[in-house]
């Protein structure tokens, strides 16, 4: 466990936006080793604010508190085990539209300015350094973006239970999260149903299944085989805009936006097919290389 020699003082009141270029410039080896945090005042000067910065959802304290609490709560566990706990709660605390979440500057600011301690705790191997892309990187790599997006893409409407299933399996986070096929929600839910079944799936099986689903997606249009319901954009909008500071339960699963649930019939239609893919891969006796 790396030591934290510098405590971050004068915390910013709001979440900001820190462009990639300047973020990268401050990811020195000392920062990546966890020996320093990026210079607060400089980072503040180089950061901008969301257009509606005064909205409660941009308050920095709740998300910082949640991340610090995570490091405390899982102090005695492997940091990977914190993901399944943190992902739904991070999603509840960070009320973002997908358009906002697509901006890397937001995640840069969270990682470099709001809670670098969390990034180091979660990603720094003993005696090593954090990969820069965990601070500032693609959505499926960056320390906080990957968890938020996992919650966003794997939740079943308001239900975060599938998110817990997903984040309990690092192969799901590393492989499935970036597959294009799971952006169609019934595919994601069908896949997670197999992952979450008794006995679950091994990492190799997850990768094989994800690869098969992706490859079959070049000839099958899942959107036709298993149609999704239309997103309730109004409900999601309302949830994002609703008063911040709402209490995030730590011991029970929070509830997500009042979004439409994935049609069960569509998930049911895909599950046997995916089971077949899996059986097929087993027969072949080899797990293919993960799908890009």
């Amino acid at each position: 466990m790396p030591t934290r020699t510098t405590a971050t003082t004068d915390q910013p009141a709001h979440i900001g936006l820190l462009p990639d270029g300047v973020a990268r410039a401050h990811l020195t080896s000392a920062v990546l080793r966890g020996d320093e945090v990026p210079p607060a005042r400089t980072v503040d000067r180089l950061s901008t604010s969301p257009s509606d910065r005064a909205a409660p959802r941009w308050e920095a304290a709740p998300v910082r508190q949640l991340l610090l609490d995570t490091t405390g709560r899982f102090r005695d566990h492997r940091p990977t085990t914190a993901d399944r706990w943190l992902a739904p709660r991070l999603h509840t605390v960070l009320r973002l539209t997908r358009a906002e979440a697509a901006d890397p500057a937001l995640w840069n600011h969270l990682a470099l300015r709001i809670a670098p301690e969390y990034v180091v705790w979660r990603w720094c191997p003993a005696g090593g350094a954090v990969a820069a892309s965990r601070f500032s990187g693609p959505f499926h790599v960056q320390a906080l973006a990957r968890l938020w997006w996992a919650a966003e893409l794997f939740r079943d409407g308001p239900d975060y239970a599938p998110v817990v299933t997903a984040c309990a399996n690092q192969d799901v986070l590393n492989t499935v999260l970036r597959s294009q096929a799971i952006l169609h929600r019934p595919v994601a839910q069908a896949l997670l149903r197999l992952v979450g079944e008794d006995g679950g799936l091994t990492g190799r099986e997850v990768n094989a299944l994800s690869a098969a689903v992706g490859a079959a997606g070049s000839t099958l249009l899942y959107e036709v085989l298993a149609p999704d319901a239309e997103t309730d954009t109004e409900a999601v909008r309302a949830w994002i805009g609703s008063a911040h500071g709402s209490y995030v339960p730590y011991d029970t699963l929070p509830e997500g936006p009042d979004d439409v649930r994935v049609p069960q019939a569509s998930v049911d239609a895909l599950v046997p097919r995916f089971r077949g893919f899996l059986a097929d891969a087993e027969v072949r006796g080899r797990a293919p290389v993960p799908a890009p």
Binding site: R98, A101, A102, W149, L153, E223, T231
Partner: peptide, 11 residues
């Protein structure tokens, strides 16, 4: 409709 950056697909 498909956008990689926002992970959004609408069919």
């Amino acid at each position: 409709l498909r956008e990689r950056a926002t992970n959004s697909v609408t069919a």
